[in-house]
Amino acid sequence: MMMSLGPYASFIVTSYAAAALVVAILIGWIALDYRNQTQRLRELEESGITRRSGRSATDLR
């Protein structure tokens, strides 16, 4: 069943598309930051610095 959005259809569709794009960008940004932070932790552990929690960066996955 197709809904009629009336005269504001382009505004509604554009708004939903913009919101979806922002959410997708934020998800990608968080995923990249997670990988970067995990790599930093590995590098610090390899240099001899340990974490207070006692877990290693490889235990995070």
Rank of each mutant, 00 (worst) to 15 (best):
M3S: 14
M3G: 05
L5G: 00
L5N: 00
G6T: 12
P7G: 03
P7F: 08
Y8K: 09
A9M: 11
I12N: 09
I12K: 06
V13Y: 10
V13K: 09
T14V: 02
T14D: 02
A17K: 13
A17H: 10
A17Q: 06
A18H: 00
A19S: 11
A20R: 04
V23H: 00
A24F: 01
A24V: 11
L26Q: 05
I27N: 07
I27Q: 05
I27S: 03
I27K: 15
G28N: 15
W29D: 14
I30L: 07
I30N: 05
I30P: 00
A31L: 12
A31S: 12
A31W: 15
L32G: 00
L32S: 06
D33S: 13
Y34E: 11
R35G: 09
R35I: 03
N36A: 08
Q37K: 11
Q37L: 08
Q39C: 03
Q39I: 07
R40A: 11
R40N: 10
R42S: 13
E43Q: 15
L44R: 12
E45S: 02
E45F: 08
E45G: 07
G48Q: 05
I49A: 01
I49N: 10
T50S: 13
T50N: 12
T50Q: 09
T50K: 15
R51P: 04
R52Q: 10
R52V: 04
S53P: 07
S53W: 13
S53D: 14
S53V: 03
G54N: 11
R55S: 02
R55G: 03
R55K: 03
S56G: 01
S56Q: 08
S56V: 12
T58Q: 09
T58E: 12
D59S: 10
L60N: 02
